[in-house]
């Protein structure tokens, strides 16, 4: 089994892409779930404000998801740009 330096770099980049996306998905997943949970709680308290609360929840989740999206971008870069 011969292997060159370029091979090693590519292999490490692909494994790194997997780890980046995998580990990067943990935090946003939990955080977004927490935001959504608190929104459900608030809707339970004041069902008449459901529209406003859902919108706020979606915006909050979108912001907490940013780090997950950065992981996605980094993973895609590692897969398709690193040669």
């Amino acid at each position: 089994m011969e292997f060159s330096g370029a091979d090693l770099i590519r292999a490490a980049a692909l494994l790194g892409a997997g780890l980046a996306m995998g580990l990067g998905a943990i935090g946003p997943g939990v955080g977004e779930g927490y935001a959504a949970g608190k929104a459900c709680e608030a809707i339970g308290r004041r069902p008449e404000e459901a529209g406003l609360l859902t919108r706020t929840m979606l915006v909050g989740q979108a912001v907490s998801e940013s780090t997950g999206i950065y992981s996605l971008v980094v993973a895609l870069l590692l897969m398709f740009v690193v040669q």
């Binding site: 979108a62 940013s66 950065y70 996605l72």
Partner: peptide
């Protein structure tokens, strides 16, 4: 700039 990346990759993904 990250806002652009996040909003478009969310929908695409």
């Amino acid at each position: 700039l990250a806002k652009v990346i996040s909003i478009s990759f969310r929908l695409y993904g």
